[in-house]
């Protein structure tokens, strides 16, 4: 068929003959789209409030710390303990935003539309995990970095805390991986966002309380060994223990974490367990 010539307005159907990127490009696009979603970007104003409020809260200690360094010439706030002190804020961020990533697609049955495209369920889950991890990494690493830049600019009468800063960045990565795996898996078990938020928060509160109570009881009964392990029930302490053992930094509040590879193995096991749960969850969703 010869193409019509001299036609200016063609309102008929036009075929697309431009580039078709593969599965990888689609997965990356989904990851970026999801990451923007965790901060409410490209969404309504209402969905931006929570993430930005929490991000602001995370920045607060860094800003105060910079002010103290500048005015009183004192050491900055501990880099390696930052996540421990801010754990409530981080947990709320995870609880509020993990369901945003997974619940709507499950609830409104959008997943079959993804599956009718080149993208696979592994790509889908991978993109969601990556988005949440990067979001948490931003939440954790930006305040640390801002504080470190502040420390570099203010001439303190002491060496820079470069090692602590880098160790804390490593710890941030572990936190991001661990919290994302747990948070997304818990959130994916219910298609309702509100329930997802509640289940993640409940899980955090449970580990917080269990860790504190068990540790206290075991210690008062004289089981020092068992008590040092039971601290690790709280995911934030687990990460702190891994960070301490791996980078040789000071543990938070001088806690007697178990030394060696134990905590790291627990972390890997928990992540593996959570990810298997997530995978099975979506396998089930696909079969339905």
């Amino acid at each position: 068929m010869s193409q019509p010539t001299g036609v200016i307005h063609d309102i008929g159907y036009r075929h697309y003959d431009g580039p078709r990127l593969g599965r990888g490009a689609a997965a990356v696009a989904l990851g970026v789209h999801s990451l923007r979603g965790t901060f409410g970007l490209g969404r309504t104003f209402k969905s931006k409030i929570m993430p930005f409020l929490l991000f602001g809260a995370m920045m607060l200690p860094a800003v105060v710390s910079i002010a103290i360094m500048a005015l009183l010439k004192q050491a900055p706030m501990s880099y390696t303990d930052y996540a421990i002190f801010m754990q409530a804020v981080i947990a709320i961020f995870l609880a509020a935003q993990a369901p945003v990533l997974v619940a709507p697609d499950l609830r409104h049955r959008v997943i079959p539309l993804y599956m009718s495209r080149p993208i696979t369920i592994i790509d889908y889950i991978g993109a969601k995990l990556a988005a949440m991890m990067v979001a948490l990494l931003i939440l954790l690493a930006v305040p640390l970095t801002v504080q470190f830049i502040g420390e570099m600019l203010i001439d303190l009468p002491m060496p820079l805390h470069t090692h602590e800063y880098l160790a804390a960045l490593g710890g941030s990565l572990f936190s991001a991986v661990l919290l994302t795996s747990i948070g997304l898996t818990l959130a994916s078990f219910t298609p309702r966002r509100g329930l997802g938020v509640a289940s993640v928060i409940a899980f955090y509160m449970f580990t917080l309380a269990t860790s504190a109570v068990l540790t206290g009881v075991l210690e008062s009964e004289g089981y020092r060994d068992a008590s040092s392990w039971s601290i690790l029930i709280n995911p934030f302490f687990l990460v702190n223990a891994v960070q301490t053992n791996l980078f040789g930094t000071q543990p938070v509040e001088g806690l007697p974490f178990p030394s060696g590879a134990g905590p790291a193995l627990i972390l890997v096991a928990v992540v593996a367990l959570a990810l298997s749960g997530l995978y099975l969850r979506y396998r089930k969703a696909l079969a339905a």
């Binding site: 989904l30 969404r43 709507p104 495209r117």
Partner: peptide, 22 residues
């Protein structure tokens, strides 16, 4: 199979990208 909080334009653009369109 449609998310109620997105506009048709946003949603269809997203689905086009999931099919590999730039």
């Amino acid at each position: 199979c449609l998310p109620p909080d997105q506009s048709a334009t946003e949603f269809v653009v997203h689905m086009a990208r999931m099919s590999g369109l730039p």
